[in-house]
Computed example of a mutant assay.
Amino acid sequence: MILDRFQVPGKVAVVTGSGRGIGAAAAVALAEAGADVVISSRTESDLAKVAAQVTERGRTAHVVPADLSDPVAAAALAAAAVDTFGRLDIVVNNVGGTYPRPLRETTPEFLEEAFRFNVSTAHALTTAAVPAMLEAGGGAVVNISSNMGRMAGRGFAAYGTAKAALAHYTRLAAVDLAPKIRVNAVAVGSTATSALDIVVSNPEIKERMESATPLRRIGEPEDIAAAILYLASPAGAYVTGKVLEVDGGLQTPNLELGLPDV
């Protein structure tokens, strides 16, 4: 059965930024497919809700409240998986993000912070996970990039640069870790997470974004979770070093910030 290839029974996954949004949906999807999960974000109450959903699906969630903007804290999740479940097979580097800011207000420090939060944390967890994945016979890493890593929009110099770096990091890491560990990414388009609360709660802005999106809607976290499951499971066994665009068909940004000419 082809659907069997989307199952990950007995596997163990780490999902960062998994208190809500894409990370939460990914953790639940992996649990539905048979994995136990280590979930981590800042807010323990959010994680408790996700853990309950994992339990409802017959799997176990190990909750690790942490500030994952610190690469050391991100790396520690690999050991948490091994200590709790005895193995590690899947890593989803979901934590990240950076607020838009005009270019002339984007200081070198702000740019470096964006890089650390979006790229250094992913690198720290990935490298920490490698020994456990090799001991388990192989593994899969899925990085969450963005369509702003390949498109140009005003105000996104820090965020777009960091996500573009994460996308190319994915390609480079895939070569270094082949053939036993696959590394892929999802380039996410506008998705209904807390980061877009202001947008999706404004009917006029939401309609404008949907009209500018070929599929005429904003994405749902489950849209991204489905792609993550594909890349993390045997269904994606012949895929590595790739960036899967899940963005409703966007070729240009669907929301302009209205920043004036300099």
Results as ranks from 00 to 15, higher is better:
residue 30 L to G: 01
residue 91 V to D: 10
residue 138 G to H: 00
residue 243 V to W: 03
residue 3 L to K: 02
residue 237 A to C: 13
residue 97 G to Q: 11
residue 198 I to D: 12
residue 239 V to S: 09
residue 89 D to T: 12
residue 191 T to N: 07
residue 166 L to S: 05
residue 198 I to H: 05
residue 50 V to M: 01
residue 139 G to H: 00
residue 56 E to N: 07
residue 222 E to L: 12
residue 158 A to S: 15
residue 167 A to R: 09
residue 171 R to H: 06
residue 174 A to N: 03
residue 74 A to E: 08
residue 236 G to S: 12
residue 262 V to D: 14
residue 55 T to M: 01
residue 257 L to W: 13
residue 164 A to L: 12
residue 259 L to S: 12
residue 2 I to A: 02
residue 122 A to G: 10
residue 242 K to D: 11
residue 254 N to S: 15
residue 219 G to S: 11
residue 123 H to C: 11
residue 187 A to M: 09
residue 220 E to V: 08
residue 32 E to F: 03
residue 205 I to C: 02
residue 249 G to H: 05
residue 100 P to R: 08
residue 54 V to C: 01
residue 72 V to S: 13
residue 156 F to H: 15
residue 83 D to F: 06
residue 10 G to L: 04
residue 216 R to E: 14
residue 77 L to S: 12
residue 150 R to G: 09
residue 116 R to V: 14
residue 22 I to D: 05
residue 26 A to M: 07
residue 225 A to W: 04
residue 38 V to F: 08
residue 226 A to C: 07
residue 147 N to I: 09
residue 112 E to A: 15
residue 133 M to K: 00
residue 245 E to D: 07
residue 70 D to M: 06
residue 250 L to E: 08
residue 178 A to E: 10
residue 98 T to F: 08
residue 110 F to I: 14
residue 238 Y to P: 11
residue 244 L to D: 12
residue 239 V to F: 08
residue 139 G to I: 00
residue 55 T to D: 02
residue 33 A to Y: 00
residue 152 A to H: 05
residue 180 K to C: 04
residue 160 G to Q: 12
residue 182 R to I: 04
residue 182 R to V: 05
residue 120 S to Q: 09
residue 35 A to I: 10
residue 218 I to C: 10
residue 30 L to K: 00
residue 80 A to F: 11
residue 150 R to A: 13
residue 139 G to D: 00
residue 195 A to N: 07
residue 120 S to P: 05
residue 164 A to W: 07
residue 252 T to L: 13
residue 96 G to A: 11
residue 206 K to Q: 09
residue 250 L to S: 14
residue 160 G to C: 13
residue 98 T to C: 09
residue 53 Q to D: 07
residue 47 L to W: 06
residue 204 E to T: 13
residue 19 G to M: 04
residue 145 S to T: 08
residue 122 A to K: 05
residue 231 L to P: 08
residue 28 V to N: 03
residue 223 D to T: 06
residue 99 Y to E: 14
residue 206 K to W: 00
residue 220 E to D: 15
residue 221 P to K: 05
residue 133 M to P: 06
residue 3 L to G: 06
